[in-house]
Simulated scan of single mutants.
Amino acid sequence: MAPSLRVVVNGMEFENPFLLGSGPPGTNAKVIMKSFDLGWGGNVCKTISLDHTKVINTNPRYAKLRDPDDAKKVFGFENIELISDRPFETWLEEFREIKKRYPKHILVASIMEEYRKEAWVEIVERVQETGVDAFEMNLSCPHGLPERRMGAAMGADPEIVREVVGWVKSVAKIPVWAKMTPNVGDVAASPKAAVAAGVDGISAINTILSVVGVDLDTLRPMPTVEGYTTPGGYSGMAARPIALRHVMEIAKAVPNTPISGMGGIYSGGDAAQFVALGCHTVQVCTGAMLQGYKVVQKMKQELEAVLAKHGFESLEQLRGQALPYFTTHHDLVSRQQAAKKEIGIGRDNETWQGEIDKETDSLTAN
Rank of each mutant, 00 (worst) to 15 (best):
V176L: 12
R66C: 15
Q283M: 12
A156H: 04
P142F: 09
P175W: 04
I48F: 09
P191N: 06
K73R: 15
F326Q: 07
D331F: 03
V333Y: 09
P255R: 09
P158M: 11
T360I: 07
G232P: 11
D69G: 13
H280I: 00
V211L: 14
S362E: 14
E129K: 15
T364W: 04
R6S: 10
L290T: 05
I343F: 13
A156C: 11
L19A: 05
V184H: 03
I174W: 07
G263V: 08
K100P: 01
V55D: 08
K298N: 06
L5A: 03
E125G: 01
W120P: 08
K252H: 14
I160L: 15
H143Y: 05
T229W: 01
M180S: 06
S334C: 07
S267A: 01
S84L: 01
Q321R: 14
R220W: 02
I208M: 10
K341G: 11
R319T: 06
R86M: 05
I356V: 10
K104E: 14
K294M: 01
P258G: 01
L209I: 12
L19M: 14
W352I: 06
L5W: 04
R240L: 04
E113G: 15
G346L: 05
G227Y: 08
L20Y: 06
M137T: 14
S170D: 14
E94C: 09
P87M: 00
V7N: 00
P3M: 05
D85F: 02
I208C: 10
S190E: 11
V168M: 15
W352S: 00
T364K: 12
V44L: 03
Y102P: 08
E125C: 05
P241A: 03
R240D: 00
R319W: 03
D186Q: 10
R96S: 10
N256I: 00
S110V: 09
K104N: 15
K117Y: 03
A109K: 10
V214H: 04
I106K: 13
V295M: 09
T90P: 00
I80C: 04
Q337T: 02
A308S: 12
L209E: 07
Y228A: 07
C279N: 04
S260A: 13
E13D: 12
T58C: 09
K294R: 01
Y115P: 06
L332M: 13
A288V: 12
Y228K: 15
I205D: 05
P255A: 09
E249P: 00
V8F: 00
R162V: 03
N43M: 13
T364C: 02
K169D: 11
S334G: 06
H330T: 07
A156V: 13
L107Q: 05
N28Y: 10
L92H: 09
S35R: 15
G344V: 03
G11T: 07
A271E: 09
G320S: 02
V168Y: 11
E302D: 04
M1I: 11
A153W: 04
E147Y: 02
G21L: 05
P146L: 06
S203V: 13
I208P: 00
C279L: 01
V295E: 06
F274H: 13
E147P: 02
T360E: 14
W40S: 00
